[in-house]
Design a protein around this nucleic acid. Sequence first.
DNA 1: TAAAATTCTGTAAAATCGTGCAAATACGTT
DNA 2: AACGTATTTGCACGATTTTACAGAATTTTA
Lengths: 249, 249
Amino acid sequence: MLKEERHNYILNEVRIRNRVLLTDISKKLDVSEDTIRRDLNHLDEQGKIKKVHGGAISSSFHLYSYREDQIYAHESKSVIAEKAIKLIQDDSVLLMSGGTTNLEVARLLPDDKRITVFTPSLPVAMQLLVHPLIETIFIGGRLSKDAQIALGGEAIRTLSQLKADLCFMGTGNLELAAGLTEFDWEVVQLKKAMLDSSKRMVVLTISEKINSSQRFNVCPTSSIHTLITELSPTSEMLKSFVEKGLEIL
Amino acid sequence: MLKEERHNYILNEVRIRNRVLLTDISKKLDVSEDTIRRDLNHLDEQGKIKKVHGGAISSSFHLYSYREDQIYAHESKSVIAEKAIKLIQDDSVLLMSGGTTNLEVARLLPDDKRITVFTPSLPVAMQLLVHPLIETIFIGGRLSKDAQIALGGEAIRTLSQLKADLCFMGTGNLELAAGLTEFDWEVVQLKKAMLDSSKRMVVLTISEKINSSQRFNVCPTSSIHTLITELSPTSEMLKSFVEKGLEIL
DNA sequence: TAAAATTCTGTAAAATCGTGCAAATACGTT
DNA sequence: AACGTATTTGCACGATTTTACAGAATTTTA
């Protein structure tokens, strides 16, 4: 394994998780801890990461900050991402929202898939650029500091010109009766536009976010074609959604 | 086996796998490691790949990456960024291109400045989000893997609706007679549009990039209002630009 | 404060690199 | 065909880089 590969791997991990443990990387990449330590120090000198005792953390931004309870969630998101990726056909047009689950999708996309992806999410776009065959189009607009996505009229106008084959919608709030909801009014507008701009709406969410709702409504449950969670489709929790006619993966 | 065949094979491997090992190619193509080494060095000089110890990786990975010769350059870029930031007035609208110098500007911007910034650069936008009072608007479009900026008609259309107070244009190529030039045709189009969308054009470049030119022309030297380098305005090297009527900082 | 984990420093082995050189090959000219 | 020139390739050898290991020093944790 090349040194630069390790560096890329580490930077990627830091970008996604906002932290890495030295021992974890050492085990994962099967090289000595000394080597990883040298790597981390090297990347720190370049200002790419911040070396701390026992590992490293992101040096710049803190949206996807680390919390104990999110470590477990990350595993689930990988499972969801794997399922989602299977839906993508070659030469199709994909629309991806923001959020950590979609970021995981972007990270895990195979390098030999040739697709076009539209996204208003800065981290997702950044991640997509890594893949050689993927054409990435950023949906511009005023950037939200919190979500690191483009919002507002400009973004919605761009979306109105588009009809994607597939839309991967990451969300924190899905409930049977209320449907898809959001806290932020502007995000609601954007997500509505995304819904209108795609033939098939796929919602990606971890099970713990199901059955919670926010104050503004994006769309009813019936507007969603497919729901992907880390659970098995036969899970008790998802029963009511199956009855509503949703495809569960 | 022809040299060109090897080169094509290597480029393809890098494109698909994002990396190659020198020993692997040597064995696979049944030529000596020295020959492959020469091939890799050659392709690196052309900027097609990035040669590293033990093999090579995709060059697009490493736009904003560390190189021996860029360590010194980074100091200069900080100096340039500091000078540029002094030009920014509160409540003004700024347009920033991509490149490492602008990234440095974005990094060093004071947190108490309240401005609006338009940019087509992913890394610059990412960095701007860190500052609480800065409103960032991303100029969307098809993303270039190399430069990590939005290009194409969509980006240019957005720019046409805009008139910024100030434009910070990072460049690698400035020459007295040829003016501002670029290697990539699409980048030229974008930079032309940026020029048209701003009242004052400020070019940021380190002195070592002055007096080099590429094949396509963005604008003549006379279209540039201000030039910022790490050198003193009285420097011998900049004399001819002063005579052309440029403000030097 | 003591134990555990992590870091730092030096070292040695292995892998990789750069350079000079000579043989082989291709190319153009007479 | 014969010749001179340029390019390409493989090999040798010293220099450099990378890596793992060991032991002392430091930081963290309980």
